[in-house]
Design a protein around this nucleic acid. Sequence first.
DNA 1: CTATGTGCAAAATGTTTGCAGACGA
DNA 2: TCGTCTGCAAACATTTTGCACATAG
Lengths: 140, 140
Amino acid sequence: MEYITSLLRDKGFKVTPQRLAIYKVLARTKAHPSAEMIFNELQPLYPTMSLATVYKTIEILKEIGLLQVLNVGEDSFRYDANVENHPHIRCMVCNRVDDLDNIETAGFADSVAKLTSYRITGQQFYFYGICPACQKKNDK
Amino acid sequence: MEYITSLLRDKGFKVTPQRLAIYKVLARTKAHPSAEMIFNELQPLYPTMSLATVYKTIEILKEIGLLQVLNVGEDSFRYDANVENHPHIRCMVCNRVDDLDNIETAGFADSVAKLTSYRITGQQFYFYGICPACQKKNDK
DNA sequence: CTATGTGCAAAATGTTTGCAGACGA
DNA sequence: TCGTCTGCAAACATTTTGCACATAG
């Protein structure tokens, strides 16, 4: 948490309560919230904050490497303060998005580079399915 | 191409010139076009076709399993008439999207299922980088 | 002939932008 | 104090919807 403060300053951005609050929401959760989810969560504490501020802050956090952007096939983007490369899985019923740690995905980039002559800069692995909770609901 | 005709009819959809034309565009290309790209390509031949028709047709083609939807991190979706599961790679400079055949991605789903208790229904692997052509341009 | 499809325009959704006043350094 | 940031409203881009007319079967 002190990290974001000095990182913002180092990169020439000002440290504001809004920016800290938005990052704190992301850092605390594993729910991979969208901009609107972040906005809603902050409403009680920061009733005057606008969605535009959320988007502008996300842009900065992405730029300084404090979050990564996810595209799980919804209309909106989701954000993850865990910037390490790891796969994600979305429940197509309740739309929750979970991390998949413990899945080995390194090594792909090299073979892709050899196969295509692309210079690889990133990767995202997404899985889709039905989460345990939604499976139970449907069984009833 | 005769396949789509009978498939549409079997599923209770009517066969129209627009639907055939849209599918033909998708079936012929490996460029993974967006709705607007499809629309633009059909403009000369079908000047009265509307974007709404493109979207409605895409919805049907997805439903009957003739296309898959891609999310390569852009604001719009892209579509692929190759419905087999295969990874994709996007050039972050020119935004072209290429197929990655010859990359083994099966086997993941099983270990994900075991690890998470999700019932897996699909997966998408995306790579990001710079394509050979754009690398050359930048070197100059 | 009838039900479904098309094309238009309007609406809905998610995101971005411009700008006046607020505030961090 | 000065330059950046916030919050608002308007603009934008993509996709969806409602409806009158057209058309496949």
